[in-house]
Computed example of a mutant assay.
Amino acid sequence: MVKQKIKLPKVSLKNNGKVGFSIYLPMDGQKYQDRFRDRRISQPMSAMLFADGVGTNDIFGFKSFEFISNPLGLRLGLSDMTITDHTIEIMKGVVWDYEKYPQALISGDTGSGKSFFLFSLLNGLIKSGAIVDVADPKETDLSVLGKTASLKYRVTYGRDRILKSFYRFYLEMIKRGREYHDLLNDNLEENVGNYRKYGLKPHFFVFDEFGAFVSGLKYNESEAIQQILGQITMLGRQLGYFVAIAMQKPTADTIGSASRDQFQFRVALGKMKSSGLSMMFPDDVDEVQFKELSKNLKGWGYLAMTPGQARSFFAPVIPKDFVPFKYFDELGQQYPAIPVEPMGEIKEFLDSKSAKYVELNF
């Protein structure tokens, strides 16, 4: 009997502290290399090691797989979030750069902690210096913020008011596009930059319960909203116009495929059915082991910054004594709301420039 010598690949493990570790698989041209290159290998490793895969990296001679064994240990408090002029730290080591990963899609059923996550997001956006508009179709948690100093006159509720507010946001983007074009023509010898190079502020529209709102519109209104959303998601990045769309259950009927592909920051809060996960993370359904992270805590889920892999996530903790109106009113002392520009003046400017835009009559 001839004994066969089997040569196994050399695998390395690096401890990354109390919350996770990395596994390094060799890229040395041997027979295991093709299997190691496939990131789907992280799913059986996650099950075997009781950890969540959070991404891969290509290093000279190796492919590393990153794992988190205690995602709760990375949770931040509302006051612990590190914020710059275009980045928001939403968990330790997880930073959303909204210029690099523009347009946010957020899902979560009632009781998942979606509203608290939106408070954290608004906190980050306002502190980053962005102009923020908010739509609250159900007139619940966000509607009272329109009277605070940081969001004064920029929170709308009610069908007609929301339609007008979202349409004005779109027209403001078209106006900035014309202004941006003029700035480029006036600076032909300079390198082309985005909106920030010319001293322009980022502008966000945070739209809660988008699915419920769209389902209550007339057909022509729904079509117009989808057309407007498509233009914002495709053109807004360079101009500094962004949306954060939140809903309970994402479906193909509420956001068209053309727009949906433009959302590069995605957060799914709470337990979600496979159909919902397929809409939120279409590339990760067969590769990531989505599991319930907590039975008692709110604000847990999964996030992805495309084309990165979906990973486990805990939203920033909101203090028990948190009063939204008081907090955002005090925030406005340092970050006051920018006055709303009348729609008539915006249209007058666009018409003077012969600009093309979607017509929406109310």
Rank of each mutant, 00 (worst) to 15 (best):
L188H: 04
K201R: 15
S275Y: 09
K7T: 14
S107V: 02
M48S: 14
N194T: 10
G146S: 04
Q238A: 13
V206T: 05
F328H: 07
D141P: 06
T251H: 02
R176T: 09
I255G: 06
D52V: 03
Y241K: 03
F119Y: 14
S150A: 15
Q226D: 13
G129A: 09
F263P: 01
E221A: 10
K326M: 10
P9A: 07
E99N: 15
T156H: 12
G113D: 12
G256Q: 09
S120C: 14
F204C: 08
S22T: 15
Y157T: 13
V134A: 09
G193V: 13
R311Q: 12
L105M: 14
A310K: 01
V144F: 08
R266S: 01
D52R: 10
N70Y: 11
D208P: 00
S165Q: 13
V206D: 08
M45Q: 12
A104S: 10
Q226R: 13
D58A: 12
M45V: 15
F210S: 05
N15M: 11
V267S: 04
V243L: 05
K273Q: 11
F205V: 02
D141W: 07
R176P: 11
R161V: 00
L13A: 13
Q226W: 03
E330D: 15
K201G: 02
D85K: 10
L239K: 00
G17Q: 06
K356C: 10
V94S: 08
P202A: 09
M1P: 03
E341Y: 02
I232L: 07
L217A: 09
Y101K: 04
D261T: 12
S150R: 08
P102V: 06
W96I: 04
F36P: 05
A104G: 06
